[in-house]
Nucleic acid binder design. Structure first.
Lengths: 180, 180
DNA sequence: TTTTTACTGTACCAATAGGTACACACAGCG
DNA sequence: CGCTGTGTGTACCTATTGGTACAGTAAAAA
């Protein structure tokens, strides 16, 4: 087993339990790795594990979501692609956003830069795409903020109501609202 | 000190640390109450404390937000009032939603009914008001869902970006979007 | 073949977790 | 006065927490 294989499993543990709630015992159970291996891969302990997961998430979004949003020729198509990728990533509302989980509660302060960076990058990339799609600067910024926050809110509400469809519906609504 | 005086302080501790992160030590520090008093007021321990806080929040929203939304003569005015109350409650984006915090992570399962009930009540009350404001059923339901989720998302994004204004802006945008 | 290197399990640690037991204070009241 | 109920501090309990130390294994590199 390589370090890279562990990251997704770590991500799920942090997603489900939060940073504080993700005990070494839970991590061991989920990954099948003992403390020996865990501390071999992540000498910095839980903090390094969470940082590594955050970095991997950031990199995934960077290549699959943010970059296409910035560089896509056809801006409206890039935005639609973003929504598709997001739907897949969050398993149509059945999965929660780790960065969002960290953002609430005081775990944010521990990973302040990464959390802030993730959302800022997303918002800015989307703003750019909306501008290229023909919107005025102010309008583009406003809709981008609205889009990012709607996705987060939809994940929260979907989970609270045990109703993943909330997320799917929101994505559909967003497609119309962003590109209108 | 009475039990009722403790609840707001408990609420802040859970808000900031989440359920798992809110250690008895943190609770003691915040409330100034030792274990003796704490377990006198809440024999059920942390679980009962969190349940009591959740109940108090629910009751506050019921009387100040949900009920006016259901019973207000002037529906558009009731919706505007809701936004005002929400802005005050969440301190213009500087405070986070406890129920939202619990909804993410596995704390949700512990308080599943309360979490679900809170958001369902909010959404349904808002749906009703929008209908009374003249919207068709489907459109009203859609906008209500959108409104509740935007508030949650705005709180998350505001906190992630260290920028409470995100919340204020969202509330403004929402006023236009809901009543348009 | 020898020597590294990457990995893993076990035992252990001090600190903290949530929770209990109980003696005590101090009202209000008869 | 004495009694009773509501609070509160202290001491204590066991389980678990995150983390360390280290001996061992196995495979690759020399």
């Amino acid at each position: 087993m390589e370090r890279a294989d562990v990251l997704p499993m770590l991500g799920e543990v942090f997603r489900e339990h939060g940073f504080e709630g993700a005990s070494l015992a839970a991590i061991t159970a989920r990954t099948g790795l003992g403390k020996g291996s865990l501390y071999h891969f992540f000498p910095g302990g839980k903090e390094e594990m969470a940082a590594a997961v955050l970095a991997e998430i950031d990199s995934w979004f960077e290549t699959h979501v943010f970059a296409p949003l910035r560089e896509g020729e056809d801006a409206p198509a890039a935005i639609r692609d973003m929504l598709g990728k997001v739907d897949a990533y969050f398993r149509s509302g059945r999965r929660v956003c780790l960065v969002g989980v960290f953002a609430l509660s005081d775990t944010r302060d521990r990973f302040s830069d990464k959390v802030q960076g993730y959302f800022a990058a997303w918002r800015d990339a989307l703003t750019g795409a909306l501008r290229r799609a023909g919107l005025a600067d102010a309008e583009a910024a406003e809709r981008a903020e609205d889009g990012v926050l709607a996705i987060q809110g939809a994940l929260t509400l979907a989970r609270a109501l045990h109703d993943p469809d909330v997320f799917t519906r929101t994505l559909k609504r967003l497609e119309r609202r962003l590109l209108a």
